[in-house]
Design a protein around this nucleic acid. Structure first.
Lengths: 268, 268
DNA sequence: CGGCCAATTGAGTAGCTTCAAACTTCGTGG
DNA sequence: CCACGAAGTTTGAAGCTACTCAATTGGCCG
């Protein structure tokens, strides 16, 4: 039985901001405290499994309340975090402390790998709902190298996956208009909810218009306007954070910019 | 003595497009054919060195002429590539075959890691000048696991570094205007040339305005106009692809958008 | 020289941002 | 319980940035 790694200090250290988000703790019931490497592998949806012989090692789960920080800027890199339930944003702070949303993580997504290279986290992660997070003490794992080796290989795949995903986002920011960006975002959310077994046509956004805008490279007003537009067009129904996708096909069509269509015509 | 991995078929297979770029083969003279893992580690500028005992393994260098493909879309993922000399663009092709430039690679940069996750390359890499590229057959390395293990650890760091770099680009595309984007781009190029021992104030661009625009999320006209603007302001001198940075401080100041300054003021 | 491609420059416009105001929701404290 | 304030959202009007379309110039190569 290999040792387990306690990480309780993180939980209480960061005080949540006064604003308490709309909590949605549907998942809070099946609270687990420990996960094996196999379970983690499954959660990560990896092509190669982290091998079973490492299942003596178990990883601690930590709960975060809405608004709490999972890790913060310049914090020493010790752990990576795997979301088991809840919704998290990771943000990048520029020279002036303006936040730029990097990603929204949910079940099965990994956090905090940005700290590996420099040894310090380059970003912050903040819970947008109550969360259950598996703490993987990557550096300490080096000690029992048999486990680490498998983990490294797994993480390599995840990195590759994330790099491709980032690439995709770059392309979107570089070439799509507001309508396309928002509809791609909604579709992506819908798909992610679907994969987790939730409705893909009806869901609650967990982020503000501002956070959405930051993620999509738009202002909050443009996001709001675009949502209203899709609403008026009958493609979706928007009621504050409640989204219902009424016309999935129509939404898909919007991902093509005027520009895309023209370029397509030229080729044909 | 472990085996070395030949990879000659790549060289001749892809025919270069008719347009032959302005070649600038200053580095062509010290043509090497093989590199050890230590040499590679140094080239990659890694915090942890790939260990010396792996130096029995050597890696083949392959030459590419300007316009040739290093790897192409959907090609099976076998190798990753480390640039030893020359200038390369990696591009992403969208649904219509429009290219979106992901990155410009030069000495010490890695190519092709995007293929790891799916087993096929998600992007293409095209030489913008004559290049010398070290071929690292990542998958075959798994056989002699002692080497692979060290490599994996090294590559993990590189991935982390690249993810942070991508994050940065995302922030730029999401929040900076044309002026800021172009000046950040020029500064980044200047610094990279500097690190390689070249002049950081005077260099040749190896890419077209279109490619620059694609990378920066701008049209070629906007790039051209912005360069002319910086030229007229006396901050740089532009003569087609020849760039001279006249006022590095002035260039740095341009990286702050009107928007940034306002937000900064509000905070103070 | 002519053809081709890259780059520059201009004019007009679409789309997003900015600024501003009104409204809703939610939590807090009287 | 209601009033209040803070934060989030919506919507309008005006302005500006970057895009589109178009014409021209300059290099390069056959």
């Amino acid at each position: 039985m290999t040792t387990a790694f306690a990480q309780p200090q993180n939980r209480a250290k960061t005080i949540p901001p006064p604003a308490l988000r709309t909590s949605y703790n549907a998942l809070k019931s099946h609270a687990k405290l420990w996960s094996t490497a196999s379970e983690i592998s499954e959660l990560l949806n990896l092509p190669i499994a982290i091998q079973r012989q490492t299942d003596q090692v178990v990883f601690q789960h930590v709960h975060f309340k809405s608004g709490q920080r999972i890790h913060s800027l310049n914090q020493e890199f010790v752990n990576i975090y795997l979301v088991n339930s809840g919704f998290i944003k990771s943000i990048f702070l520029d020279e002036f402390g303006n936040e730029q949303v990097c990603h929204f993580q949910m079940k099965g997504d990994l956090l905090g790998i940005d700290g590996m290279h420099t040894g310090r986290h380059m970003s912050e992660a903040v819970a947008l709902s109550d969360c259950d997070v598996i703490v993987i003490p990557l550096l300490k794992l080096k000690v029992c190298s048999c486990t680490f080796e498998h983990f490294e290989r797994a993480i390599l795949h995840i990195f590759s996956r994330q790099l491709v995903a980032q690439q995709n986002r770059l392309n979107i920011l570089a070439s799509k208009n507001a309508e396309a960006r928002v509809s791609i975002f909604l579709q992506s959310l819908a798909q992610r909810f679907h994969l987790l077994g939730y409705s893909q046509t009806s869901f609650n956004l967990r982020m503000t218009r501002h956070e959405m805008g930051s993620y999509l490279g738009l202002t909050l007003e443009t996001v709001s306007r675009t949502l209203s537009l899709l609403n008026d067009a009958g493609i979706i129904s928007v009621q504050l954070r409640r989204i219902v996708i009424l016309d999935a096909e129509g939404l898909k069509e919007l991902t093509l910019t005027h520009r895309d269509i023209q370029r397509c015509m030229v080729k044909v």
